[in-house]
Design a protein around this nucleic acid. Structure first.
Lengths: 144, 144
DNA sequence: TTCCTTGTTGCAAACATTCTCAATAAAGGA
DNA sequence: TCCTTTATTGAGAATGTTTGCAACAAGGAA
C-alpha cells in the first residue's frame, strides 16, 4: 500500500502546489521498498519524464523531509539516502573504522524514543538515523 | 586540558605517521571548545601555516573519526561538523521543519546508550548524533 | 474561462567534499 | 647519518548538493 495520495494531500494542505514533477517524484519514493539516493530517484524519474531536473528532485525530497513525510540520513557511501516513513523506525550502528552497519531492532529503540518524545515534546516519527562508534571486531583488534 | 598528545600517541600506535600538518590540525580541534566545520578548522590552520590544503584537513578529521578520536555529524547548515570526544555525549533533536535544535541531556541518553552497548557489543563513545523530527511548535501549527 | 499572484522549475553557477596521482617526506633499518 | 619503503601531501579534477534567477505554471479570484 502506497501513501502517495496521503503525501500529496498533506502537502496541498500545507499550501504547497502539486506539480507533475512532484507527483512523479513522490510516487517513486512512496512505492519504492527501500531507501534511495537522489541519483537513484533521478534514474527512475527519467523513465517517466525526460525533462525533470536533478535540482527539483533534491528540492522535492527535502520538502518531504521538512514536512515529516520522509527522512534523510548519511548512507556512508558519500551520498545522502532518503526514505519515506513507512519503513518504520530504525537506528543504524555504523562503525567509524570498518564501516559495517548493525541494525538496532525496533523493540530496543521504542522505549528510548518514547522517552524522548515525553521529555522534550518532540515528535520523532519518522526517524531513521545513525550512531557512529566502533564495532566489536575493530575494537578488539586495537593495539591498546 | 587538551587531549592533543593522547590523540597523537594513539595515531602513532595505530601506525599513522605524524606530520606537521596533522599536528597543527589536531591541536586546533583538540583545543577548541566547540564543534567546527572543516572550513572553520581551515581558517585557524591558515593562522599557523600558509600551505596546508583543505583536502588534508578533511583527511585528518576523517582519520580522527575513523579512529574514535572525534565525531562528525550533520550540522544542518549544509556543512559537516566535527568535534573531539571531550565534549561528552549528546544528542541533538533537529526539527525538520524549522531547523531548531534541542539538546538531550546526558542523563536522558546514558541508559539508552548503555543498553545499545550491551546488546550490540558496539562502543558508542564518543557519540554525537542528531534525531530528526518535528518540534512542538511546528507540530502544533500543522493544519491536521 | 481568464487573469493574477506567487510558488516552482530548469539551468548554470556556486559550494562542500572526495578522489587521483605524481612528488614529497616520515619512520625504521643499515 | 644515509637509504629505502611507503604513507601522506598538494593541486586540481570530479562528484554530490545547494543556490540565484528569470521564465513558467498552479491554484484561487473574478
Amino acid at each position: 500500500m502506497s501513501h502517495c495520495h496521503t503525501y500529496l494531500k498533506k502537502l496541498r494542505d500545507h499550501g504547497y502546489r502539486i506539480t507533475p514533477q512532484r507527483e512523479i517524484i513522490i510516487q517513486i519514493i512512496a512505492h519504492c521498498g527501500k531507501h534511495m539516493s537522489a541519483e537513484e530517484v533521478m534514474e527512475l524519474v527519467r523513465e517517466k519524464s525526460s525533462s525533470i531536473n536533478i535540482a527539483t528532485v533534491y528540492r522535492t525530497l527535502d520538502m518531504m523531509v521538512e514536512n515529516g513525510l520522509a527522512s534523510k540520513f548519511d548512507s556512508g557511501n558519500g551520498k545522502t539516502a532518503y526514505a519515506t516513513g513507512k519503513h518504520g523506525p530504525h537506528i543504524h550502528l555504523v562503525c567509524k573504522h570498518c564501516g559495517s552497519v548493525t541494525k538496532v531492532s525496533e523493540n530496543d529503540i521504542s522505549a528510548f524514543l518514547e522517552k524522548i518524545e515525553d521529555l522534550y515534546d518532540f515528535d520523532c516519527h519518522p526517524y531513521h538515523f545513525s550512531i557512529n562508534g566502533l564495532c566489536s571486531d575493530c575494537r578488539h583488534s586495537e593495539s591498546n
